[in-house]
Design a protein around this nucleic acid. Structure first.
Lengths: 114, 114
DNA sequence: TATAAATATGAACATATAATCATATATTAC
DNA sequence: GTAATATATGATTATATGTTCATATTTATA
């Protein structure tokens, strides 16, 4: 978990400089892809990509425990990838990030066409 | 690690059927995004996206151990995301999947423009 | 063949993470 | 208020994963 430290490339000489990834960008990018790197989360996102679903509906459609779905939805919610609305005691979840949805669909198609 | 089993949705009634993700697609998609979900791998891919680099060059540019880089390159190599060529004892690595590179760049830009 | 240089690999360790279980919270209806 | 329903949450456990260290492998050269 510990890795060598490195001096920052001196900005100024713009010659062979390439655009370094700052820590924040790196974090956001890695978190975004991490959301898409788990079969369970992929299935949830894929399911709710067209229309909203309640937590229980997601669990039933995908054969998952309610608790599992709720945990994963929290993850996706924290990243603002999904949104939700309440109706009584029921929470309806749906997609909230078109860019990520695009990327997911692109990659699904890419994977299918072998 | 064990989750409820579920009967397959009966194909045939095409009414509200949505395109289920088969296991293989799910695996490929998740693996692809997993490759992009780690800061170290992101930095490596981003570095070699324009031109080829040797293992040692990557390690030096990114402040990583040679061993760390080599392990991660094996990961990326197995997914055919990078290719390599030998020159003496030196191995030069470069990108080998434009789709994944596209997705990475898209997401980096998306993350940067806040 | 012996040596050096570059890379790859296996084992060990620490950490991260997903699923599960039990339970808490929130909302509605009575 | 109490009961019922839907969801959220904390703790636990098993597993997956990234880094490090030591060493093996590969290639070139003397």
């Amino acid at each position: 978990m510990m890795e060598e430290e490195k001096k920052h490339a001196s900005l100024g000489d713009s010659k062979d400089e390439y655009d370094e990834l700052d820590e924040e960008t790196l974090f956001i990018v890695s978190q975004t892809f991490k959301a898409l790197s788990e079969p369970t989360r992929i299935r949830i996102l894929h399911l709710i990509s067209d229309k909203e679903f309640s937590v229980n509906d997601i669990a039933e459609h995908l054969g998952l425990l309610q608790s599992t779905v709720s945990h994963q939805l929290r993850f996706l919610k924290n990243l603002r990838l999904v949104k939700y609305r309440r109706e009584g005691t029921t929470m309806y979840y749906s997609m909230d990030d078109n860019h990520v949805l695009d990327i997911l669909n692109q990659t699904i198609n890419h994977a299918r066409h072998h």
